[in-house]
Structure formats: structure tokens, C-alpha cells
């Protein structure tokens, strides 16, 4: 089996301009197919960590390996392309382009990821299958994203993250906008899909009650140190 899908080593980062906030991650990794819940209060550096993993910011030092590739060594454009190819992202809410159809939204990452696009034989059919698997009505593909309920939007976001089977899914509190029942149903569907595809999942949340379903639950403090100095 190949190495870990995600492997951070000796990473440190400080926000430029915003004096007094720095994040260091000595070591953090996720194996293939592993589901990890990362718990942390707001302001604990979760978002910064996700940005480092996604490659929208660069660490001051250290390596961020995704699928065996150190993205910290890539150029900006290459990192964007790499993210498109290897990571599916699910936000807290407002995941979708409101003016696009559901199909537009699901197929969007393929536009930036040729290799991922090639893995999907028939993109439209694949998107429809994902929607069915996620319990969305069959005729939803042509619906406008803005017409969907929040729960439906989150599921469309999952379909978008999963299409073309990227090895890693990053979810940033995807359930926080949902009520308790919907949360459970949403997680059921998400896990069913990651298991089928052997996709690794890193979910960030502040809600420890979700922990039981994950392979591993990690507190932000366990893997990262944040520094705050009053400027």
C-alpha cells in the first residue's frame, strides 16, 4: 500500500501582516481511506491548517505531502491544479454557485482537473449516480442551486467533492448548518460514499459528539501549537 494520503512534517506558518499569530504542526498524517475528525475551538488555527493542506497558503518551512507529493514545493498555479486533482472540498455552507445548475456545480472541479475528468467516463451520468446515492431526487440535476434547501445543497457539495474520486476530502464543519436529524443522515451518506471509494476524509468541527463515527478523533492542540503574541 502506498504511503499516507496526507502527511504534514515540521510545518510552520505565520500570517503576514497580522502580527502575533503563528501555527506549527510538527507531524500529522492521514492514511488512505481513513476518516479523521479534527476538533478545535474557533481561532485554534483550523482554517489555517486547512488552507495549508489545500495549498492556498504556503508554509514558511516544512513539507505538506499529499498523495506523496510535497505541494509546498509547487508553484501557485501547480498547487491550484493539484488541489483540483486531489482534494474535494466541502464548506460549512454556501457551497454552491447559486446561479449555476446542480450539474454545473458538481462538474465544476473537473473543469480544473483534467486527470480527474478522465477518470470519470461519463461525467453527467456519474454526477446523477452520485446524487441518487446521496438521496437526492433524480430530476435535481437541472435545478438551480439557489432553489435547493440547505440540506440538499450540502449533499450536492458532497457529490461535487466526490466526483472523479479524489484521494482526500476536506470538510470544514459541513454539518453546522444542519439540524440534528439531518446531521446524522448527512454523515451516513458521506461515510457510505468515502467507504465505497476508499477516500480519506478530514473533517473539522467543534462538536465532539460526531466523534464516534470516525476512525480517529484528534484535538487541534494535539497536533498543532499556536502562538499569539500581543503586538
Amino acid at each position: 500500500m502506498a504511503g499516507p494520503v496526507l502527511d504534514l512534517c515540521d510545518v510552520s506558518y505565520h500570517w503576514p501582516g497580522r502580527a502575533g499569530f503563528a501555527l506549527t504542526v510538527p507531524s500529522f498524517h492521514i492514511a488512505k481511506g481513513e476518516t479523521v475528525l479534527l476538533l478545535g475551538e474557533s481561532g485554534s488555527g483550523k482554517s489555517t491548517l486547512l488552507s495549508l493542506i489545500c495549498g492556498t497558503i504556503l508554509p514558511d518551512r516544512g513539507t505538506v505531502n499529499i498523495a506523496g507529493r510535497n505541494i509546498a514545493a509547487l508553484s501557485g498555479g501547480a498547487r491550484d491544479r493539484f488541489r483540483a486533482e486531489h482534494i474535494g472540498v466541502i464548506f460549512q455552507q454556501f457551497n454552491l454557485l447559486p446561479f449555476g445548475s446542480v450539474a454545473d456545480n458538481i462538474l465544476l472541479p473537473l473543469r480544473f482537473a483534467p486527470a480527474r475528468r478522465k477518470r470519470v467516463q461519463d461525467a453527467a451520468a456519474n454526477a446523477a449516480d452520485l446524487c441518487t446515492a446521496l438521496g437526492l431526487p433524480a430530476d435535481i440535476m437541472t435545478a438551480k442551486a439557489s432553489a435547493l434547501s440547505v440540506g440538499q445543497q450540502q449533499r450536492v457539495a458532497v457529490a461535487r467533492a466526490l466526483i472523479g474520486q479524489p484521494p482526500l476530502i476536506i470538510a470544514d464543519e459541513p454539518t453546522s448548518a444542519l439540524d440534528a436529524n439531518s446531521q446524522a443522515a448527512f454523515l451516513d451518506l458521506l461515510f457510505a460514499q468515502t467507504r465505497t471509494n476508499e477516500t480519506s476524509l478530514l473533517m473539522v468541527s467543534h462538536d465532539p459528539r460526531l466523534g464516534a463515527r470516525f476512525d480517529r478523533v484528534i484535538q487541534m492542540e494535539e497536533i498543532a501549537q499556536t502562538e499569539r503574541t500581543v503586538a
Binding site: 498555479g77 491550484d80 483540483a84 464548506f91 465544476l108 472541479p109 473543469r111 461535487r160
Partner: peptide, 13 residues
Amino acid sequence: REMAIFRAMGARP
């Protein structure tokens, strides 16, 4: 928000 979604999907600035 729209631009962040595009970026997350791999769009370059």
C-alpha cells in the same frame, strides 16, 4: 464567496 468556491475547486487567481 463565489470566488472562494472557484478557488476551492482549483481555479487559479
